[in-house]
């Protein structure tokens, strides 16, 4: 199909979105990612019955954690498609990129890590 999608997306492959851990996503933001999205199988089509549903729950949870921290919760999203939907994958990538561009960079990027002030 030779579809194109934005090149600023780094893909991390997991056997099932049910494998996506809260810490994976949180760490992405801690390290400066502007947005994270999970692409799972269509709901109802999980080989492990509910991996993608659990992932959605976790994405919602991360949304809340980010808001608590002070980062826009909408920087994390969940998408679903079937493995045969290449064009949809490219469409989601485009959509997410535009969405994150509209939000601007992760505010943590401007705050490089430094040693904590001595007590």
């Amino acid at each position: 199909m030779r579809l194109t999608y934005p090149t600023n997306i780094k893909i991390l492959r997991v056997p099932c979105t049910g494998k996506v851990d809260v810490m994976y996503m949180l760490r992405c933001f801690q390290e400066g990612a502007d947005g994270v999205y999970c692409v799972g199988c269509l709901e109802g089509n999980c080989h492990y019955n509910e991996g993608n549903l659990q992932c959605r729950e976790r994405v919602n949870h991360i949304h809340d954690l980010l808001e608590e921290i002070g980062i826009e919760g909408d920087r994390v999203r969940m998408y679903n498609l079937s493995s045969g939907e290449g064009p949809t994958f490219a469409k989601f990538a485009q959509e997410m990129t535009e969405h994150i561009l509209s939000l601007g960079p992760n505010p943590l990027k401007a705050k490089p890590r430094k040693v904590a002030a001595p007590a």
Partner: peptide, 20 residues
């Protein structure tokens, strides 16, 4: 513990008051 520590680290950095 890991989740909470990550949250705290990020939040304090955003506040320009980093925590170890």
């Amino acid at each position: 513990v890991a989740v909470l520590n990550t949250e705290l680290e990020m939040a304090r950095r955003l506040d320009d008051d980093p925590i170890d």
